[in-house]
Design a protein around this nucleic acid. Sequence first.
DNA 1: CGTCTATTTGAATGTACTCAAAAGCGGTGG
DNA 2: CCACCGCTTTTGAGTACATTCAAATAGACG
Lengths: 188, 188
Amino acid sequence: MNLLIEHFRKFVSITSSEEEDILSYFELIKVPKKSFLLKKGDICDSSFFINEGCVKFYSIDNSGVEHIILFGPENWWITDMFSLLSEIPSELFIESILPTSYYQITRKKQLQLLENFPKLEKHFRILLENHTISNHKRIRQNMELTAKERYEIFCNRYPSLIQTIPQKLIASYLGVTPEFLSKLRGMY
Amino acid sequence: MNLLIEHFRKFVSITSSEEEDILSYFELIKVPKKSFLLKKGDICDSSFFINEGCVKFYSIDNSGVEHIILFGPENWWITDMFSLLSEIPSELFIESILPTSYYQITRKKQLQLLENFPKLEKHFRILLENHTISNHKRIRQNMELTAKERYEIFCNRYPSLIQTIPQKLIASYLGVTPEFLSKLRGMY
DNA sequence: CGTCTATTTGAATGTACTCAAAAGCGGTGG
DNA sequence: CCACCGCTTTTGAGTACATTCAAATAGACG
């Protein structure tokens, strides 16, 4: 019962004889919290599949403030696509916020994987389609809703994260200051 | 010299004998401005490639305010991926803001196209990758920058749109009121 | 030319931010 | 086991960015 293979099986059928072959393209890595999978300035050459734990994908603006673009919980696929494709140094960070294990695959190996298992093209296309849908929702919500409404939606959607991660990370994801989020929470 | 075929040729090689066959999956449609390619409540069953002109992709919030998620100028690929994939009625609108011609392809035909020209899978994957990069930039900019900074970036990036489309649409894209954008522009 | 829409301007308001300080909480070492 | 340290969360006062509403002006198009 491997999470990564199960993940592929959501959209593509994989025989048990293929499993091992596919997994050989990946490296399984365990890290404690506060470990960096990617740092600003690095050229991102890999994609990551979060197997256990959670990472944050974020930027740091000119004033030194952190902005979380998205969380990568279990079962999430994450990379800095811009740096990965352009081979330009990344402006972003990927960092574990819990003890985390993840599968890493370099771009080169990913391309080989797709050569050898063309049916996986479909899998990655579907992932990207779903990701695009989420991004549009996020953009809409940031334009249409107040911080309070966004917080309520976040609580409903990620009840488990609320319990396990610091409020200031949620504030950073919602695009407000931790102080302001604290005030919102008081308004009930 | 066909824009759509040239577009495919950016990432995938297409022989001249394939051209006609590929184009047969699409329908070329011309419309005046203020025509709807998609309305809220419709199930989106097609994707659109903008050949000439420009469309806006937007939502209308509970207060009746319009929020532009993205512009689709020439050479742009656009659809409501959520509705297209889920077959749930769309919450979004796609509407021409200039006289526009576009290629339309239904989901069904697109899947057939991919069956018959599997190399196009790669093309659509790359499109989605680039789209994902743009979305992340947009999310970052909305969190990191003030309205004024976002406006300046928009002017630099889409100088041609500034000349041709109403300010209020730019305000809607930037996520500010038209009145406030007008004030920003006065501050030079 | 007249009508409709877009843009500008101004005053009052609201949402969210900054800075500062206090309170709470969790882990670590003595 | 408790005391202390560092980090997170809360609270408060003052401020800034952006909105609302209203009205005037400018532009576009039949």
